[in-house]
């Protein structure tokens, strides 16, 4: 029963990792950009949530209503102001610029909030649970997983059913021809980053409610998101959810064996899948 419990906790944790991964996957899909600062942006969102809850005295979920648009706006400005200049055939500029950004965000957070771990207070929600078949499931992990499913379904809808998604796919296919269709790729990229950081805002606040956080943990969150993307298969949003679930389950089961094995177990599963299925478990079937 303990093992089953660990497995289910891991699956629910996977929802959070899928949210880490969704933003990463989205911007890679649209503009082939891998954002090294992605994890630090998640942590930034957590701190923005923390400040909002403290200053306005509101619940973290209410704070989300402010943090989401703020992060989206930041994403648009960041993309148009800096990241668009790095896009081209050369791999180095986007990688090194986002790496620099990662160091800047991390140290700015250290400067403002210090290295002390912080946590957001979600009140009674944090301890509430339901009993299902003898297992006690936390409401918060269940909600996190539910939110992840809804967000991924929403992204899937935007990508394949709306004019914005059509523009994303067209620009991703062929930037020049997309320009001929009246699409300004710089604006489209800005919107993609805005959407990615809106998802990141949700991920950051859910992270901040679930565990304590400090400015240095961004790199680890980037890695979890990245592992979920690769396990699931590049360019497949539902695969990303599956990747997150596999990673989450590996971590909680690893921790069950030995607490020191929690993260290592996740990495080992990732490397194992990379060894046997380098394109991930659910690679996108190209048309």
């Amino acid at each position: 029963m303990d093992w089953l419990n660990a497995l289910i906790q891991g699956i629910l944790l996977g929802g959070l990792y899928a949210l880490f991964a969704a933003g990463l996957s989205l911007i890679f899909g649209v503009m082939r950009l891998v954002n090294i600062a992605h994890g630090d942006l998640i942590v930034l969102a957590a701190y923005m949530g923390l400040t909002t809850t403290i200053v306005l005295g509101v619940h973290p979920f209410v704070a989300m209503l402010l943090v989401i648009p703020a992060m989206a706006l930041f994403g648009y400005v960041l993309q148009r102001g800096i990241l668009n200049q790095t896009l081209g055939d050369d791999l180095l500029p986007p990688l090194l610029v986002t790496f620099g950004l990662s160091v800047i965000i991390q140290n700015a957070l250290l400067e403002v909030y210090t290295a002390d771990p912080q946590k957001m207070d979600a009140g009674a929600l944090e301890t509430a649970s339901v009993s299902v078949g003898g297992l006690s499931l936390g409401i918060l992990p269940l909600m996190t997983f539910g939110i992840a499913v809804v967000i991924i379904a929403g992204l899937q809808f935007i990508f394949y059913r709306t004019a914005l998604g059509r523009a994303f796919r067209a620009v991703s296919d062929n930037q020049d021809i997309a320009q001929l269709m009246g699409l300004n790729r710089r604006h489209v990229f800005g919107l993609a980053m805005a959407l990615a950081l809106a998802v990141t805002a949700i991920a950051g606040i859910l992270l901040g409610i679930r565990t304590s956080f400090d400015p240095s943990i961004g790199g680890g969150r980037l890695i979890f998101g990245f592992e979920a993307v690769i396990i699931g298969g590049l360019g497949n949003l539902w695969g990303t959810l599956a990747g997150g679930v596999i990673l989450g389950a590996a971590q909680t089961l690893g921790a069950k064996i030995d607490p020191g094995w929690q993260l290592l177990a996740g990495h080992i599963v990732f490397l194992f899948i990379l060894a046997i299925r380098p394109n991930g478990l659910f690679p996108r079937i190209s048309g």
């Binding site: 296919d173 300004n184 048309g287």
Partner: peptide, 23 residues
């Protein structure tokens, strides 16, 4: 830019057709 010119009413049928494969 190409998108501004497209809005003014010039369209190009590019060599090699170049459809969007994801669409």
């Amino acid at each position: 830019r190409a998108d501004q010119i497209a809005k003014k009413g010039i369209a190009l049928v590019p060599e090699g057709r170049q459809l969007f494969p994801s669409l």
